[in-house]
């Protein structure tokens, strides 16, 4: 039972990550490699503020979202000048910078969360407690699972409402033909900044959930591999609607678990999983480049 709850929590967290990334990839038409960086900012801000400053979970989560939104606004001024390939490189730069800062803002013999040792470098931050909200402790796994799955559902509903509104229509129009959208008198830059802020704030919330569930975070949450995993969820599932990223998260998170039942020798299991994952991506690109349930094909 605990195994199922654990999987539901992971699924909830990564559904939020995939849905938020879909706003940037599927609705803005921009490929970003920095989503894990915002996820990690959410995790670290939550972990530091709760363990070092003893903030309440709501205060800490708000701060995590706020920090990510501020950074995203600064960075998302870039798409105005950088398009397609160069935007990918800009996002890669953000990813590398955030990872380096997290991995290196460290001084031995100094408590984590201080100015001299903000992130505790490669040793990470441990002791993040599961929160209590309105007096209800989320320590039992079932309650935390309810929070993660509930948050993902609420997020999916809000996103569905936002992306099927005139705002979503404007984002899609700007994605399809930016020059024409500008020519219709639309403030394309503002819509994109809003979309980035919303996406990065949401993934930071997912990061905060992750930190409070696992109890320990290290720089691997901000790694490029993590960004690529999130991107794979969206690309395999499909972009441009709500169903695609949900399907991608379900397939890519549950597939490795399904392979566990295949009784593959432990020594080669990891390699076999990677092999199957790689083959799946290549087959998808050939047969269904728009993803399992996607509407928009990322170029």
């Amino acid at each position: 039972m605990n195994y199922v709850l654990h999987l539901s929590i992971y699924l909830g967290i990564y559904c939020i990550a995939a849905l938020s990334l879909n706003i940037i990839v599927g609705y803005c038409g921009l490929l970003t490699m920095a989503h894990a960086a915002y996820f990690a900012i959410g995790s670290y801000v939550y972990a530091i503020t709760t363990t070092r400053f003893l903030w309440t979970p709501l205060q800490a989560a708000s701060m995590a979202v706020g920090a990510s939104v501020v950074l995203s606004v600064v960075v998302s001024l870039a798409p105005r000048r950088f398009k397609r390939d160069s935007f990918v490189l800009i996002s890669l730069a953000v990813q590398v910078i955030v990872f380096s800062v997290i991995a290196n803002w460290f001084e031995p013999m100094t408590p984590p969360g201080t100015l001299r040792n903000l992130t505790n470098g490669p040793f990470g931050i441990s002791g993040v407690l599961r929160p209590s909200i309105f007096g209800i402790s989320l320590e039992p796994l079932a309650r935390f699972a309810a929070l993660a799955v509930g948050a993902a559902l609420v997020f999916a509903v809000v996103l569905h409402f936002l992306l099927n509104s005139p705002w979503g229509r404007l984002l899609k129009a700007s994605r399809d033909d930016e020059l024409v959208a500008r020519g219709l008198g639309k403030n394309v830059d503002l819509a994109r900044i809003q979309a980035f802020a919303f996406a990065c704030g949401s993934v930071a919330f997912a990061g905060a959930l992750y930190a409070s569930y696992v109890g320990y975070i290290d720089p691997s949450t901000a790694s490029l591999d993590h960004s690529i995993l999130m991107l794979s969820l969206v690309i395999v599932g499909g972009t441009g609607n709500i169903r695609g990223p949900l399907a991608g998260a379900a397939v890519l998170l549950l597939l490795p678990e399904a392979l566990r039942t295949a009784r593959i020798d432990d020594a080669v299991a990891a390699s076999v999983r990677l092999l199957i994952f790689g083959v799946l991506l290549v087959v998808m690109m050939h047969l269904r480049p728009q993803g399992l349930l996607g509407e928009y094909r990322v170029r």
């Binding site: 005139p166 705002w167 229509r169 899609k172 129009a173 399809d176 959208a181």
Partner: peptide, 27 residues
């Protein structure tokens, strides 16, 4: 240069100026 992924109705509706629904905060 219509927006290819959208319906004709959405292509025209997006052009109408001053839409409250284009601001997520208002939404």
């Amino acid at each position: 240069r219509l927006f290819p992924s959208q319906t004709l109705l959405d292509n025209v509706a997006v052009a109408v100026p001053n839409q409250q629904g284009e601001r997520p905060s208002r939404l």
